[in-house]
C-alpha cells in the first residue's frame, strides 16, 4: 500500500518536473537545459520576497512565476532564437545559462538548510494505514489539475492549438499565419512558468538547494526520453513508469539507487525503443 501511494506521489512529482521541459521541446524542438535552473530560481525568488520583503505567500509565488517566465522568454528571444535549429548549440547555450543562474545563486549565498519554503498546509493524514502529509497530497491534486489545465489550454484555446500545430509541422503552421518565433517565445515562457510552478509545489517538501536544479534537469530529461521526446501523454506515462520504478527500488534494493533508476531507464529506452513509449510516428521516420 505504501508503495502504491508513494509511487503515485513520486510519479506526479516527476511529471511536474518534466512538463515544462517536454512542452518547450514539443513545440519548438528545443531542449531547454536551463529548465532546472528556472526551477530553483522560482523557488529562490519566492523565498526572497517572502522572507526579505514580507510579501504574502501567494503574491510572492506569483511574482516568482512571472519573473521566471520572463527570463525564459528573454532567454529565447535574445539568445536561443539566433541558434535555432542547431541542436548542439541550443543545448550548450541553454545549459550555460542554466549553469550561470545556478552557480550565480550559489555564489550569492544559496546553500542548503536556511532556504526553506513553508508547506502550504501542515500536518498529515492516514490513508489506508499509510501516513501522508498534506503537502504531498496537495502535490498530487495540483499536479493532476495542472495536467488537466494544460490539456484544456492545448486543445481548446486558439493559442494552444497554434502551439500544437507548430509542434507538428512548423512550416505548415507558418502558412496558416502562425508566427513561429512568437509561438516559440510563448512556449518557452510557459515552460519556464511550469518549471516555477513545479518548484513552488515541490520545494516545500525539502529545502531550496542548487543541486535540485541539476536533479530536476536529469529527471526531466529522463522522463521525456522514456516518454518520447515532445509527447505530453508519453511524458505523464513515463513519469509513472520511472516514479514507480524508483519507489520499488527504494523499497527492495536501497534508497541510494534511486537516481540510477532514471538513468538506466534512459539507456534501456534508447536501446529498445529510441523514440520512447509514445513516439509511434517518429518511429516510422527512424526506420526510413
Amino acid at each position: 500500500m505504501e508503495i502504491i501511494i508513494y509511487g503515485v506521489i513520486n510519479s506526479v512529482t516527476l511529471a511536474l518536473m518534466a512538463l515544462g521541459f517536454t512542452l518547450v521541446y514539443g513545440v519548438s524542438r528545443l531542449p531547454n537545459f536551463a529548465h532546472g535552473a528556472f526551477y530553483v530560481l522560482a523557488g529562490y525568488i519566492c523565498w526572497m520576497l517572502l522572507n526579505r520583503l514580507g510579501l504574502p505567500y501567494f503574491l510572492a509565488g506569483l511574482i516568482g512565476l512571472a519573473v521566471v517566465g520572463g527570463v525564459g522568454a528573454a532567454m529565447y528571444h535574445f539568445i536561443l532564437e539566433r541558434i535555432r535549429g542547431m541542436a548542439i548549440s541550443e543545448i550548450i547555450a541553454s545549459y550555460a545559462i542554466g549553469l550561470a543562474i545556478l552557480e550565480g545563486l550559489r555564489w550569492g549565498g544559496l546553500k542548503g538548510g536556511t532556504f526553506i519554503l513553508q508547506p502550504f498546509v501542515e500536518g498529515s493524514v492516514d490513508i489506508l494505514g499509510v501516513s501522508v502529509d498534506y503537502q504531498r497530497i496537495l502535490v498530487v491534486v495540483l499536479g493532476a489539475a495542472l495536467v488537466g489545465l494544460l490539456w484544456l489550454f492545448v486543445n481548446q484555446t486558439k493559442l494552444g492549438l497554434a502551439l500544437k500545430g507548430m509542434a507538428q509541422d512548423e512550416r505548415a503552421a507558418m502558412t496558416l499565419g502562425i508566427d513561429s518565433d512568437k509561438m516559440a517565445v510563448v512556449a518557452m515562457a510557459l515552460g519556464s512558468v511550469f518549471a516555477g510552478v513545479a518548484a513552488l509545489i515541490l520545494l516545500p517538501m525539502g529545502s531550496i538547494v542548487v543541486e535540485a536544479g541539476y536533479h530536476v534537469l536529469i529527471m526531466a530529461v529522463a522522463v521525456c526520453i522514456v516518454g518520447g521526446l515532445g509527447s505530453w501523454t508519453g511524458a505523464v506515462l513515463a513519469a509513472f513508469v520511472i516514479g514507480f520504478a524508483q519507489i520499488l527500488t527504494v523499497a527492495y534494493i536501497g534508497a541510494h539507487w534511486q537516481v540510477v533508476v532514471a538513468l538506466v531507464a534512459i539507456i534501456i529506452t534508447l536501446i529498445l525503443r529510441p523514440s520512447g513509449i509514445f513516439g509511434k510516428q517518429k518511429e516510422l521516420e527512424e526506420r526510413v
Binding site: K158, A162, A172, A173, T175, L176
Partner: peptide, 26 residues
C-alpha cells in the same frame, strides 16, 4: 496570402477536425 503547400503537410497527429481548428488561428 495563404499557401497550401506542396505535399500537403497535414498535421499528422491531429484529427481532421483539429487540423481545421488549428488553421482557424486567423
Amino acid at each position: 496570402i495563404i499557401l497550401c503547400p506542396e505535399r500537403r503537410r497535414i498535421f499528422p497527429e491531429s484529427t481532421v477536425l483539429e487540423n481545421l481548428r488549428i488553421a482557424s488561428y486567423l
